[in-house]
Design a protein around this nucleic acid. Structure first.
Lengths: 218, 218
DNA sequence: CGGCGTACCGTACTTAGTACGGTGATGGTA
DNA sequence: TACCATCACCGTACTAAGTACGGTACGCCG
C-alpha cells in the first residue's frame, strides 16, 4: 500500500469501471474523462492509470460491464422463452446505458463477459436443436434486432411513454408546409396518441423473429 | 469573395461535409478533426467555421450524407422488392461508412436526407396496404435489423470473405483451455470454412422478416 | 533500521475545439 | 473613380483532455 490516508476501499480496476459506467450513464459518454473519473473516485487523474492502461481499456471495460448485466439464457430451457428473456434483458441494459451501442461499433476486442454471454446464447440454441448453421443465422438475426432497436431508442429525441407527442410536434413545426406527409401522418395518427411508447414496438418484432426461427427449426 | 488566391472551388458546406466523410472513411471517426479537415481542404482550421457552426453540426451533416446515399424505395412498386432493395443499399452504405452507426446513437436531430428517406419508406409501406400501426411495426423492425446488422459488421475484427477464419483462430489462441465451447464449435464448423462471409447472413434475416411482415399484411 | 515495492500523485507536453478579433479583396454605390 | 461595407478567410490564444515521465511516501521485509 501507500499513502492510504483516505477512508474507504482502495482504487481497483473494478471501482474504476463502475464509476466510469455511472459517469457515462449520468452525463453521456462525452462526460466520461479521466479527470472526471478521478474526481468521482476522489483521487488524482494519474492514479487511474495504475489500474487501467489507458482510456481505450476503460471503454472496452464498460462495454463488457453492460454485457455482464444481461440475463443469460438457460440452455436446456424452452428456447423461445429463454431467447425472449435474454432479448428483453439486453434491451433494458442497452437502454440504461445508451452509450454502449456507440462504443460497440469501434470495439473489436470482446471482453470476458461478452464472450461468456455469446457462448451461452449459442449453447441455448444448439441445445434446442438448431444446427450450427441455423444457429449462426438465428444469432445474427436476434442480435441485429436487439442492437438496432437500441440504436433507434438511443437516437430518439424522447424517451418513455407519452413524451413523444410533444417532441414530435416541436420537430414538425420546422417542416416546410406539406413536407414529409407520411411522417406527419405517422405522428398524427400514431405517435401523438396517448400511451404511445416506442419501446412497445420491441415485442412485435421479437415475436415475429421468434416465429420465423421456430418454423425454420420445424 | 476575399483572398481567393487559391485555385479550385471555394469552400462550402458541401465541400466540408464531403471531405469529412472521406476522412472518417479513411481513418475512422477519431481521425476527423477540424485541423485534419482544414488541411485536406487546403485552408486553415478557423475557415471551416464559416461554413458550419461547430463540429457537432459536421457530425450531424455526415450522418445525413450517409442517408442520402441510400437508395429510396419506390412507393407503388412491389413492396417486398422495394424494401429489399432499400435494405441492401442501406447495409452497403453503413458498411462503407461504419462510423455512421456510432454517431446515430448520439444524434437526435435528423437531417433533410434522413427525413426524406424515412418519409419515402413510410410511403411505400402505406401504399402497399399496411395500416398506420402495421407500418410503424414494420418500420421499427426493418430498421432495427438493418442498423443492428451494421453494428455487428462494424464490430467484427475482420471484414469480407475468408478473412474471418484466421482472425477467429488468433482470438481463440488466448482462450483458456476448454473455455467457450460453443464459440469454438461455431468457429471450427462455420466461421473458418472457406467462403464464409458474415455479410451473407444479412439475406437470411431479411427474408425471414419480410415473410413475417407479408403474413401480417395478409 | 535501512531499503524496496506499491500505490498514488505533480508537472508538463501534445492535440483538439473554438472564441475573438483581424485583414484584405470584391462588388456596390456615389 | 473613390470609397466603403461585406464577406471569406485566417492568426492567436485559451481551455480541456489524454497521458508520458519521474517523483514520493507508506508499510513491509529482512
Amino acid at each position: 500500500m501507500s499513502r492510504r490516508i483516505k477512508e474507504g476501499p482502495p482504487l481497483s480496476r473494478e471501482r474504476v469501471l463502475r464509476a466510469a459506467v455511472e459517469l457515462a450513464d449520468a452525463g453521456g459518454i462525452a462526460s466520461l474523462t479521466i479527470r472526471s473519473l478521478a474526481e468521482r473516485l476522489d483521487v488524482k487523474p494519474m492514479s487511474v492509470y495504475h489500474h487501467v492502461a489507458n482510456k481505450e481499456e476503460i471503454l472496452d471495460g464498460i462495454v463488457d460491464q453492460v454485457f455482464a448485466e444481461i440475463e443469460l439464457p438457460r440452455p436446456g430451457g424452452d428456447w423461445r422463452a429463454e431467447m425472449r428473456r435474454r432479448a428483453d434483458s439486453a434491451r433494458r441494459a442497452l437502454r440504461r446505458h445508451s452509450w454502449a451501442i456507440g462504443l460497440m461499433e469501434s470495439r473489436a476486442t470482446p471482453g470476458a463477459a461478452s464472450l461468456h454471454h455469446h457462448d451461452t446464447v449459442l449453447a441455448c440454441l444448439r441445445t434446442a436443436g438448431f444446427s450450427v448453421e441455423q444457429t449462426a443465422h438465428a444469432y445474427a438475426l436476434l442480435d441485429s434486432y436487439i442492437y438496432g432497436f437500441a440504436v433507434q431508442e438511443a437516437g430518439l429525441p424522447f424517451e418513455g411513454a407519452d413524451t413523444a407527442g410533444t417532441v414530435a410536434e416541436a420537430i414538425m413545426e420546422h417542416f416546410p408546409e406539406g413536407a414529409y406527409p407520411h411522417l406527419v401522418e405517422m405522428a398524427a395518427q400514431h405517435i401523438t396518441k396517448p400511451g404511445y411508447d416506442f419501446g412497445n414496438e420491441f415485442g412485435f418484432g421479437l415475436e415475429l423473429i421468434l416465429d420465423g426461427l421456430a418454423s425454420a427449426l420445424h
